[in-house]
Design a protein around this nucleic acid. Structure first.
Lengths: 349, 349
DNA sequence: TTTAGCACTCCGGGCAAGCGAGTGCGAAGG
DNA sequence: CCTTCGCACTCGCTTGCCCGGAGTGCTAAA
């Protein structure tokens, strides 16, 4: 039937939506009377009570204890996010403010990523974090192999976002500085503009051998490119942890400890967003969907940012399940958009 | 007189030391009876009471409220740290463990700095942070100016710790790739091994002009070196914030918020240790000495680490004033030592 | 100068009472 | 058959109170 949503009739859906909305707003378990008083439901509290009992039986609501109001369950939030809430858009002035604040960062990849995480954390009033562009979605810009002595050299590779990575290598044969320059030029000519992940080992070896180098040099070049590809892979800027302290759900200090630990282990932080990485659009993970008991009463909103058409990184907001999803999605999208724009400023042309 | 310490007679000094020691150990305000029971003072609790009243009048102790025990004041801690406590040394096995764990980090500046902050945070059970080497204490290793088109080039400067910084510049005249190589070689020859801060603008200009370049190129080279000098200046690795949650003094969430905020603002974090930067030895700042009301019940232990003879950065521990100063000083020194050793592994020779 | 004794203070835990918000259910009404 | 009303019941939270324990300051005696 068209007046069913997710297996709920229209009235149940509306009541669920209202409960979630009210709980998000107040943080207090919401009861039937309070609901009928504040919202014009057109039915009495007793009816609402019956409906709420049904919703609880269906797993959408939970009761902290008898004689308390209802609170949404993971499933309740999920339905709300997927089907019930009305999406939000940022106002023009909000957009402008985001853009203005993003301008404060200098045109350096690290700076604009950090700035966007600070900005998002502050606007969203929650913990925000932003992954640096996956380095294998960046493209190769320049390589320079530098002779630094009879037996060793240093390889520098610059990506399209102006990130330089360097690695040392040994020189086994009697290569001259000129040889290295020749090889640098050949690499630059061959791979210019190509995605880093497409600079595969085979073509690297081919170019190196063409310049008259042997296996040892192939290994060095390969290592240099691998270094550039994996460098800073899980690099993440996080910010806004202090806002979590305002949330009543963190009166319990143990929760906080989990968060702080996660914050310091970039690895875990990265795993959190990793799941969202395949999907090109915004994603919301609620409570247990995060896959960890520690994080069971948190939610995560993740939005990709792009360079051109390609999604290159993620902006995320981590906060209590009881978060204003529509608003945060709008904020994250807006910030992602601006970040994407600024990405063009750091591009090495 | 030789049996006075800091204006306190011997018995007062001993009682003060015991009070501080006991308070650090238990976290409870310490009363006269408890003290005489646990420590063999050779006098009755009443006498201790009188002495404590004197110490309070002298500003060394404070009373949270009437009918509670005494707690050390900033001045009390200060006297304890300066004159009363007995310094600690790490055991051989502890040293070995630190060394072993530091070996886990790869030979990259960032990694060993982060590893040492993680290690120190965990061992000290407090928030630890480590500044990266001041970049102007590093020395110049290589410069490479790369021709990337008719009108632009990229300058890459590698420091003695293998940190590469890059900057873009414009080419106004019709310089060729060979010209740039020639200039690179000249820079390398002239400045090899010199401290970055000693690569002054005048000598840079001289070398550049000698190679036949004009003012525009001088500006570019100067900018590149300035970039290398100031890059990452306040770079700080922090870790162990979650330990602070165990401390009873953080039951008050507002305290925690200050800390988290500071943690995210590298600037403030840097200012904290900046004061200790001139002094070559370990330094302890207690409570209000930190210069901020927010941090008034915290203390900071700071120890420099060296490269060769030169102090290049700082290891710090931030925790409640009630911290085991002697132990933390020993831990920080031990970690600093090991960090200093590992610094040689990242040196670009 | 030290010690013993004593009255006083204050914090914190434990307990009971009362309040308020909310539920569930049976019966009445449309 | 669905909705509504009325009512008894539940339960957590707050308030007020009491009491024990730890500690202090003061006075007087050794």
């Amino acid at each position: 039937m068209e007046n069913e949503v997710d297996g709920l009739d229209k009235r149940k859906a509306y009541i669920l939506a209202t409960v979630v909305y009210e709980y998000i707003a107040t943080g207090e378990p919401v009861g039937s009377q309070a609901l009928t008083q504040k919202y014009n439901l057109g039915v009495s509290s007793a009816t609402v009570r019956n409906e709420m009992a049904d919703l609880e039986a269906g797993g959408y609501l939970e009761q902290p204890h008898t004689s308390a109001g209802r609170v949404p369950s993971d499933a309740g939030y999920r339905t709300y996010v997927d089907a019930l809430m009305s999406p939000e858009e940022l106002g023009v002035d909000e957009r402008r403010r985001i853009r203005d604040e993003m301008r404060d960062a200098r045109a350096q990849l690290d700076e604009i990523v950090e700035q966007s995480s600070r900005l998002l954390g502050r606007l969203a009033g929650n913990l925000a974090f932003v992954t640096k562009p996956q380095s294998d979605t960046q493209s190769f810009r320049y390589a320079q192999l530098i002779w630094i002595g009879e037996r060793s050299g240093i390889a520098i590779i610059v990506t399209s976002f102006g990130v330089a990575s360097q690695s040392l290598f040994e020189l086994r044969n009697d290569a001259t500085p000129d040889d290295l320059t020749r090889l640098s030029n050949a690499l630059n000519a061959t791979f210019a503009g190509r995605l880093l992940r497409d600079c595969d080992d085979r073509s690297l070896a081919a170019v190196t051998k063409q310049c008259g180098f042997g296996e040892d040099m192939v290994g060095a070049v390969r290592a240099a490119f691998t270094g550039a590809r994996t460098q800073e892979q899980p690099g993440i800027a996080a910010s806004g942890a202090q806002h979590l302290l305002d949330q009543p759900e963190f009166r319990d200090v143990r929760k906080l400890r989990s968060i702080l630990r996660i914050l310091e282990e970039q690895r875990t932080l990265y795993d959190l967003v990793a799941g969202a990485f395949d999907s090109p659009a915004a994603s919301v993970k609620i409570g247990h969907e995060l896959g960890s008991e520690e994080l069971a009463d948190l939610s995560l909103v993740t939005v990709p940012y792009r360079f051109g058409e390609r999604a290159v990184g993620m902006l995320s907001i981590l906060g209590p399940r009881r978060m204003p999803y529509a608003r945060l999605l709008a904020l994250a999208s807006g910030t992602a958009e601006t970040l994407s724009e600024r990405l063009h400023d750091v591009e090495v042309k």
